[in-house]
Write a protein that binds this DNA or RNA. Structure first.
Length: 269
DNA sequence: TATCAGGCCCTAG
DNA sequence: CTAGGGCCTGAT
């Protein structure tokens, strides 16, 4: 068991940010996260975060996954004091972090996310893992399912994933899986590319457009300057940044600001 | 019943 | 290159 104290780290906000669909809040108030072949339970109490794993597991995986060595205070402090909208958004989402998730998982996840709602995306991911992922058992006995490998999905018929409720996105996932398996798309190489180059490469995948490519860059490759523009962000930009978003001020971490705005837009009342 | 949800593809002009 | 129709499915 690991216990740490970190500023700007709120599990509930991260869980509800829509960047990760394999993190769930359990009835007891603890959180469950599945990433690659790792399973974790964690919770927060009195400003402390408790990770139910070894020091080795924490240091070699989860610390980086949650971006815990990054200081998010500097992002919050960079906000223009006169930008009341951003201040308000960041205030509501001040515990946000940009996770470092698996590239393949993010490609599939955000292919599924298009023209879709969060609840259904969760359901789709659950189904695709249960049907095509590897069944695993955590140290505490919990049964969970890994994320299906490209090889598995590449062998399916293009419409096979419609049974997992993907709808017309089924063929996007299957064709992209095939492109990965045959080497047309090289995930390892994309992982070494700078933002612009990686984005360009991801756009070659059938079903990946600019918004989806930016989500993949931000949530798996940790290119913090990626700035996915979806309908919510579009509306916020139209309403509050008619003269243009201050790209220069937030250069290098525009994606963090995007997450503050997005979280605020879907949670404000 | 129509519209829309964290878009993208494809075809016309 | 820009505009617009079509697309699975469930919620409102």
């Amino acid at each position: 068991m690991i216990k740490i104290q970190t500023d700007h780290f709120d599990l509930d906000q991260i869980c509800e940010s829509g960047q990760c669909f394999r993190m769930k809040k359990l009835p007891e108030g603890t959180y469950e996260v599945i990433a690659r072949n790792h399973y974790l339970r964690l919770w927060q109490q009195d400003g402390q975060t408790y990770f139910d794993c070894s020091q080795e597991e924490f240091g070699s995986f989860w610390e980086a996954y949650f971006d815990l060595n990054n200081d998010y205070g500097r992002y919050l402090e960079s906000i223009n004091p006169r930008d009341t909208y951003m201040l308000q958004a960041a205030h509501m989402a001040e515990g946000m972090r940009i996770l470092k998730q698996d590239l393949w998982e993010m490609i599939v996840t955000f292919l599924i996310s298009q023209q879709n709602n969060i609840k259904r995306i969760h359901h789709c991911i659950d189904l695709i893992c249960e049907v095509y992922g590897e069944k695993c058992i955590a140290a505490d006995g919990t049964v969970y399912y890994g994320f299906p490998e490209p090889e598995v999905l590449a062998g399916l018929a293009e419409d096979a994933l419609m049974v997992c409720n993907l709808g017309y996105r089924s063929k996007y996932v299957v064709r992209t899986a095939r492109a990965v398996v045959c080497g047309e798309i090289n995930l390892d190489r994309i992982g070494t590319m700078p933002y612009r180059k990686a984005r360009e490469e991801l756009l070659k995948c059938y079903g990946v457009g600019e918004k989806v490519a930016d989500c993949i860059c931000l949530f798996s490759l940790h290119h913090l300057d990626a700035f996915p523009v979806d309908t919510h962000i579009r509306q916020a930009l139209d309403a509050h940044y008619r003269r243009g978003f201050p790209n220069q001020r937030y250069k290098g971490f525009r994606g963090v600001m995007q997450q503050y705005i997005f979280y605020y837009e879907i949670h404000k009342k």
